[in-house]
Design a binder for these strands. Structure first.
Lengths: 156, 156
DNA sequence: TCAAAATCTTAATCTACATTAATGCCTGTG
DNA sequence: CACAGGCATTAATGTAGATTAAGATTTTGA
């Protein structure tokens, strides 16, 4: 259980690595993401203070995701370990978040997904680029720009 | 830990219920799904022999999903319990499946998602209607029909 | 501090998938 | 048996969001 300092832009994990660790964020902001065959990045999740970032695969399987720092950050590294009640609680919470994400992706439009994101993670909305929000929502930055315009119209 | 028989079409859990149980499938086939504001069903997952179906929310929160039987089935009902190693293993596996699903939904086309489904769950592909496969993939039955046609063309 | 690179926005065009509708096929039920 | 309701397929038309392109603004780094 050691403390690690990660500079903005530094990569903590690559797809294909063997990595049995989870990272608890003490300060800063990280992201996990995949890169598809066309070279496009898709942000899987953000992790700010208090959250855990990790690949959700068994400890002995190769990783599916990349993890890097969006801001200079400090994380605590631990082994994946489900024997402790506290750890398990966090994983249940993560499962709930993922379930909601799948339902969102299947049933909601880009506008609805954006509004849900802003409502649920107002802090993160302020700290990341439009480009990254779009990547998390599964749309292009151009489409997100349009969504925001339409949204302002609606509010009047 | 009791054994329950569920007839085809019978509902085991409704959205909004309080349900601290998980169901291990002994025989048959079940599904969990959500219904959006427009009344459209979205299949979240299928569960055949050996799998577990449950809502991935904390034991004391209201459910997000419906669960019902696609075939006459027998399940074993248990409390959500993460103190046992075996249970925890299943949950890690589920987390991995969900992670892959999110990445799929964000980065793959309807054709790619269909091929992945057929490759990964060939047994289930045989046992459910096209309508349900489409619902799982997040597309309409009409679009699925087209995808399959295009696919046959490509193979020639 | 200044040039190069990355980000954001707007607009035109394109495309994958949705919607609507029509037809034939099963399947269950009075 | 008959026929009513659900399922699958095909085809036409519609639309959300992708792609491409161009310009304005910010960030980066030598």
């Amino acid at each position: 259980m050691k403390k690690i300092e990660i500079k903005k832009g530094q990569i903590l994990q690559r797809k294909g690595d063997l990595n049995s660790k989870v990272y608890q964020v003490k300060s800063g902001l990280l992201r996990s993401y995949s890169i598809d065959e066309k070279g496009k990045e898709h942000i899987f999740m953000f992790a700010s203070e208090g959250w855990i970032v990790a690949d959700n695969v068994p400890p002995d399987s190769p990783c599916e995701l990349f993890i890097d720092a969006i801001e200079n950050s400090i994380v605590v590294e631990r082994e994946k370990d489900f024997s402790k009640e506290r750890e398990v609680q966090k994983f249940i919470k993560r499962l709930g978040v993922l379930q909601k994400r799948v339902i969102m992706l299947m049933s909601a439009s880009a506008i609805e997904r954006y509004e849900h994101f802003v409502d649920t993670y107002p802090d993160i909305t302020q700290r990341v680029s439009q480009r990254m929000i779009a990547s998390y929502l599964g749309i292009t930055p151009e489409a997100l720009s349009k969504v925001k315009g339409d949204r302002k119209q609606r509010q009047k």
